[in-house]
């Protein structure tokens, strides 16, 4: 059963590949994030297909989706919803905001103020919204794909570290390869294609798959490896701060999903290495004297310093 389920998810990935050309790796990472039940942050320049990916994911997994385009003048109520006085009933009636959906695309999250960002991030963490002293459950599954422009762009509010930590993964899409781009140009508009994507899976199947992922075996040797990696970010030179225990858990969780997606019954170090950069990249920060390093370079240094086969 697990096999067929994994196969179905792989089929879904292949469907996505039809829309997001030449980004098989990123597509599978996004699916892994979804399988791990975490939120995804896509960081890239405008027009790289972030929104397309989010929409395609929602269609393929059969999820209800909504989209918020963040602007600098948005308020929390614009996301969460608002209680309006209903004169005939003489009571406040809650009008749910766009957050009440299964897959929320939060476009350009760093264009809005920290206050509004916090409102969304709290909803992401708690899986519920508290408004006017009343707590309302968000649907399950609830999955946020936030996109943000690189921080060097003008007019952005960078996400604080504590809030970055709430995203399970951060991925970059990057420019497409020349072949992929040629195909894209020849095919023209992607919008219509995306809308025609059939739903391969249902939310129930997704939940089942999420459970199956966490059944994947992680041996003590593998857990030692994960721990050594995390330890190195805390003790190694060149890190101003390291990965939190939540980050360590996230790493193992994603490695499990990645292994499951590739039809393995146990996690191997390669799985950890594959998901390491997306999971850990936004949770570490280079020390001051290594300011020139991007997180990708830090992660590759981390990989090369921690011996995967060391005993213990």
């Amino acid at each position: 059963m697990a096999d067929t389920l994994a196969k179905q998810v792989q089929q879904a990935c292949e469907q996505l590949d039809q829309v997001i050309l030449g980004k098989a790796q990123q597509v599978r990472l996004a699916v892994t994030c979804l399988l791990s039940g975490g939120h995804l942050l896509i960081e890239d320049l405008p027009g790289m297909g972030k929104t397309t990916l989010a929409h395609a994911l929602a269609s393929v997994f059969g999820l209800a989706d909504s989209r918020i385009q963040f602007t600098s003048d948005m308020l929390p109520a614009d996301i969460l919803g608002v209680s309006v006085f209903d004169a005939p009933s003489g009571a406040f009636v809650f009008h749910p905001g766009p957050v009440f959906t299964q897959l929320l695309l939060a476009d350009e999250i760093n264009r809005t103020t920290p206050k509004t960002q916090s409102a969304l991030l709290e909803a992401m963490e708690e899986g519920q919204v508290t408004q006017d002293g009343e707590t309302r459950q968000l649907p399950d599954p609830f999955f946020v794909i936030a996109t943000q422009n690189p921080l060097t762009q003008f007019g952005t509010f960078p996400l604080p570290e504590s809030q970055l930590d709430r995203f399970l993964m951060r991925i970059n899409l990057g420019y497409p390869s020349p072949e992929a781009e040629r195909t894209l140009l020849m095919r023209g508009d992607t919008l219509s294609r995306r809308q025609r994507l059939p739903a391969v899976l249902s939310p129930e199947k997704l939940r089942e798959a999420q459970q199956a992922c966490q059944q994947v075996h992680a041996s003590s040797d593998l857990i030692h490896y994960v721990q050594r990696l995390v330890q190195y970010t805390r003790e190694g030179d060149g890190f101003s701060y390291g990965v939190s225990p939540r980050g360590a858990l996230a790493l193992l969780r994603c490695a499990r999903s990645w292994a499951w997606l590739h039809e393995r019954q146990h996690v191997v170090p390669e799985d950890v290495q594959r998901v390491l950069e997306p999971v850990v990249g936004h949770r570490i920060r280079a020390a001051e004297d290594m300011a020139g390093h991007t997180s990708a370079r830090l992660v590759s240094e981390l990989l090369s310093r921690v011996d995967v086969m060391a005993s213990g």
């Binding site: 390669e270 090369s304 310093r305 921690v306 011996d307 995967v308 086969m309």
Partner: peptide
């Protein structure tokens, strides 16, 4: 020479 980040398979 095996690199530290290389598993045996890789």
């Amino acid at each position: 020479q095996r690199q530290p980040d290389e598993t045996l398979n890789r």
